[in-house]
Design a protein around this nucleic acid. Structure first.
Lengths: 225, 225
DNA sequence: TATTTTGTTTCTATAATAGATAATGACTGT
DNA sequence: ACAGTCATTATCTATTATAGAAACAAAATA
């Protein structure tokens, strides 16, 4: 049983609480939510502040600090470093272009791509391209990863049940996409990501589905619990 | 003198160290860098891991976890997505390194950077670097965005009157910085931002000033609601 | 003016942590 | 199969870092 550190744990909890209060939160209230003495909350805040993870506005309310963006900017490269080998394997196994997309608001954005080395024609999928979540295998896979909602389309429900989504020609005529949600955090809504492949109509979809699902599982283990 | 908590401080330092190692880092090495006993490092890691801020790959190396993106998504979500294209345009137009800085207590911190594609030499400006608000174009621009005060330096008054600040060699010999405050409705709740460029002495400052001011206005419209 | 709230400091008991040590298992190379 | 690493976790105790109380000034509020 790996033990954790109380002080660090409380500090991180404080960070989380502040992040959940969009309008900001006072130290007094933070202390209350943490169930610690006010003096302790001050010390926690001072420490987080010194790392720029928290900042106090003139009103004295707490908000997330700019240091968060620094960490965030370093997260994506690390994700890529881990994911690229897997993506290459996926591309090779399916002979299709493999990708990882992240949700960004009501869109999803391609952040990493691996193209197959062989094959006459390959489907290019540009890093940085975006689509609405409701369109294309990637977006549907991400929606399927969310908690069920009334307004979910049949495709999304299907994808949720199957653990993958397959679309034909939604983004491009003659293109097939297969994607699967990457489950990341056990509690709460962390990052939303999916992995998939795109190819011409000739894709061996049976195999692609299998490979994509396997890859999603592997990625889930690598990225977070 | 507000005191900080050692355990929390170490934990955050650990997070920072991991973020700096793109290839991942082992617990043993982390312990070394933290200058603590390995057993302690294990406890720190366990705690950070329980908050999904850190994860361990099968090799045992440490990387940032998906929890980071959750925090980041709660930190001024609009700002970065919206700002990057504008920043790239600014970098191209001025042939200088464009940046956005946020205030963080009595310092300001660079959160987003776009470097020009052409040009032999470029000035690097690292995301995450911090300076006192009183130093450098960015800090002065932020101070100029605040309500006038008695203790404002002449530079700040000047910048407030002009709508921009220009400094030479304050942060680095031979470097010129131009920055302009981004007025937002959210400034009331603590977010203070500025946009600017840094370059070698050869900057076309006339043009840079114009472009930076325009960019600040555009950003204000996009961000401020 | 009285009263509450906020921000900070000082103090001390004690609980939490540091750090050593050791046991365990997985892997490595011989 | 063997000794020798290394990673990981568990156990233990001295001591330190922290918790929490208390006190207090300053600001805000009534």
């Amino acid at each position: 049983m790996s033990s954790t550190l109380q002080t660090l744990d409380r500090g991180l909890l404080a960070l989380k609480i502040v992040s959940e209060h969009n309008e900001g939160i006072s130290i007094a209230k933070l202390a209350e939510e943490l169930e610690v003495h006010r003096a302790i909350a001050y010390r926690i805040v001072a420490t987080l502040e010194s790392h720029a993870l928290l900042t106090r506005t003139q009103g004295g309310t707490l908000r997330l600090g700019a240091g968060i963006t620094l960490l965030a900017s370093r997260f994506e490269p690390q994700l890529h470093a881990v994911a690229l080998p897997l993506l290459k394997t996926l591309a090779k196994a399916t002979r299709a272009t493999a990708f990882i997309s992240l949700s960004q608001g009501e869109e999803c954005m391609v952040t990493l791509v691996a193209e197959p080395e062989e094959g006459m024609l390959r489907v290019g999928y540009r890093v940085g391209s975006r689509h609405p979540l409701t369109q294309g295998a990637a977006g549907i896979a991400i929606l399927a990863g969310r908690a069920p909602k009334e307004e979910d389309s049949p495709e999304v429900r299907q994808a949720r049940a199957d653990g993958y989504s397959l679309t034909r020609g939604q983004l491009q005529r003659g293109a097939v996409g297969v994607a699967s949600h990457i489950p990341t955090t056990r509690s709460g809504i962390g990052m939303e990501a999916c992995v998939g492949v795109v190819a011409m109509d000739d894709l061996d979809s049976e195999r692609a589905i299998r490979e994509v699902k396997t890859c999603a599982k592997q990625l889930a283990e690598l990225i977070g619990q």
